[in-house]
Simulated assay, not measured.
Amino acid sequence: MKIRNIRFFVLLSTILLGFLSSCKKDNDDIPSLAKPQIGTLEIGSGNNKTVTAGTDLHLEGDIVAEALIAKIDIEIHQEGNGQYKFSKSYTEGKYIDVKNTTFHEHVDIPADAPAGDYHFHFTVTDRAGNATTVESPLTIQASVAKVAYKLTFTEVDGEAHGDHFHDLADKAKVEPITVSFDEQGKALAGSHAHLHPESIYKIELKQFDASSKEIQGQYIINKATADSYKAFLTGGSFVLNTNSSSGSGAIFQTKETNYGDGTVVNGALETTGIISYFTAGKDNEGEKEVTYVLRKFNNATTKATVTRADWNRSDYETKFAGQDIIKLSFELHAEAEED
Rank of each mutant, 00 (worst) to 15 (best):
K88Y: 13
Y84N: 08
F238T: 02
T291L: 13
D157Q: 06
R4C: 04
K202E: 15
F238D: 01
K2D: 08
F278S: 00
V156T: 10
N47C: 07
A172F: 04
H194A: 08
A226P: 12
K25A: 11
H166A: 04
F297H: 12
L294C: 02
A131C: 03
Y149C: 02
I215K: 10
H333L: 13
L16P: 00
L33V: 00
H121Q: 14
Y277N: 06
L12N: 02
W311Y: 14
F252L: 06
S244M: 03
K88G: 10
F208N: 02
A210E: 15
D28V: 09
I140D: 03
Q83N: 14
F252S: 03
G54C: 07
S228W: 15
I203R: 06
G116R: 14
A169K: 14
H194K: 08
Q78R: 15
T178S: 01
N100T: 10
H194M: 07
G185D: 08
A189G: 15
I76Q: 04
T301K: 15
D56Y: 06
Q218D: 08
D163V: 01
L41G: 04
L20F: 03
S136M: 11
I3S: 05
N48Y: 11
S32Y: 15
F181H: 01
G236S: 01
L269E: 03
I38C: 09
T242D: 04
H192E: 07
Q218Y: 12
Q216R: 09
F19C: 10
Y90P: 00
S32D: 11
H164V: 02
T152S: 06
T123V: 02
V306S: 01
N48R: 09
E287C: 05
G217D: 12
R127E: 14
T132E: 09
S329N: 12
Y316W: 09
K202R: 15
A193T: 04
Q218A: 00
S87F: 12
T307S: 13
K230I: 10
Q184L: 09
N312K: 01
T272L: 06
I74L: 14
K24D: 05
E256S: 04
V64T: 13
S136Q: 13
A226E: 13
D261R: 15
A193K: 11
H196P: 10
K24I: 06
R308K: 02
E135L: 02
D29M: 14
Q218R: 12
T139A: 09
D108A: 12
E270L: 12
Y90I: 00
T291C: 07
A53D: 06
K213Q: 11
A336S: 14
A231R: 02
T132Q: 10
A131M: 09
G162N: 15
Q253T: 06
D170I: 10
D227W: 05
I200L: 06
D73K: 15
K85D: 00
D182L: 04
K25V: 00
T123K: 13
R313S: 05
A148W: 09
T50K: 15
L57T: 08
P197F: 11
G116Y: 08
G322S: 07
N298S: 14
N222G: 05
K230Y: 01
P197I: 08
N241F: 01
E92S: 13
N312W: 12
G190K: 14
Q141S: 09
N266C: 03
R7H: 08
